[in-house]
């Protein structure tokens, strides 16, 4: 206290060298295998979509911050992560301009109007996806198989329009595990290959950026419920956006609870919703909506799972 003044500030009081740019660039790096798988299976078009979404997200953020006279913070990579995640949860044949609209919507409406990074209630990339699905449902439900022939599904000429979950839900046709694991199936750009997502997730865990509570309680709940209802749990884990959502989206720092118990409750909530939507909902897939709904419940979960302060006395009624 050289100046003799006592500086009073709110927590946190200790800082580490880990900052937003480092975490976000690690996330970008961890998503690389999924991007690579998407481009490998769906071609250069997927690369174009990724570039367009990332680019428009960064440009939108910079433009809005400049317009409103705020410091420009695109170098923290958070806008790039939002754009990339959005690109990974849209179908490969989506027109590029639609992806750009989604990216702009994610950053401007879902992130910026709430006050920017750290203030948004909902995961911006998922809001972008929900917006695109509500706005251009025809484009957003048009899927493509990486290979044209699909010998395990005799008699379906509509093969190009069905994801494994749709085939399961409406036709009771099960795509083999190995195809799901490596990603030779119809789906969004990033969800196609389970192993690529798991590689990235392992890296994030090794770097200590994501914990095990949210993804494991999320996936575990889906496994338990689908097994209870007599469905194949492994199939449900490997299909759709479950792995991508559980490791990369549900774990978003801003929109998920910070308390340990809260994280488990949040993961279970996500899992229950995904299982309910997949088993009983009108949509074949529910990861996006499940996470968005639990985002809304985050503040409530934190309120009920805050640890007791040391020495706290129970309030008299």
């Amino acid at each position: 206290m050289e100046s003799g003044k006592l500086i009073v500030s709110s927590s946190p009081h200790q800082f580490t060298a880990i900052s937003t740019p480092i975490i976000m660039s690690d996330v970008l790096f961890a998503l690389m295998p999924a991007c690579f798988a998407g481009v490998w299976f769906f071609g250069l078009r997927a690369l174009g979509m990724i570039a367009a979404c990332v680019g428009s997200a960064v440009v939108t953020e910079a433009l809005l911050q400049k317009l409103c006279g705020k410091p420009i913070t695109v170098s923290d990579y958070s806008a790039a992560v939002t754009g990339l995640l959005l690109a990974l949860v849209v179908p490969p044949d989506l027109p590029i301009w639609v992806g750009v609209f989604g990216s702009v919507f994610s950053i401007s409406i879902a992130k910026f109007t709430f006050g920017g990074l750290g203030h948004n209630i909902f995961n911006p990339a998922l809001i972008g996806r929900a917006f695109l699905l509500a706005s251009w449902p025809v484009f957003m439900t048009k899927w493509r198989w990486p290979i044209q022939e699909a010998p395990w599904m005799p008699g379906f000429d509509a093969v190009t329009t069905a994801t494994p979950l749709v085939l399961m839900k409406h036709f009771n046709v099960k795509v083999p595990y190995n195809m799901l694991f490596f990603g030779k199936v119809a789906g969004t750009i990033g969800e196609t290959s389970a192993i690529a997502i798991l590689l990235g997730a392992a890296y994030l865990m090794y770097r200590g950026h994501i914990g095990i509570r949210i993804p494991f309680s999320f996936i575990g709940t889906v496994v338990v419920i689908t097994a209870l209802f007599g469905q194949d749990p492994l199939f449900h884990v490997l299909t759709g956006g479950l792995l991508l959502g559980a490791f990369f989206m549900a774990t978003d720092y801003v929109t998920s609870p910070v308390t340990p118990k809260g994280k488990v409750a949040y993961g279970i909530g996500c899992g229950v919703l995904v299982a309910l939507i997949r088993l009983y909902g009108g949509y074949p897939e529910g990861v996006c909506y499940a996470i968005l709904i639990m985002n809304a419940a985050t503040a409530l979960i934190e309120r009920y799972t805050l640890p007791r302060k040391f020495g706290e006395v129970k309030k008299l009624a």
């Binding site: 409406i109 109007t113 509500a134 706005s135 251009w136 449902p137």
Partner: peptide
């Protein structure tokens, strides 16, 4: 019609446009 953003005439579009 194919280019139109259907969400604009759904309830969330109403709230966002009004806001």
């Amino acid at each position: 019609q194919g280019l139109a953003a259907v969400m604009a005439i759904l309830p969330p579009g109403g709230f966002i446009t009004l806001g």
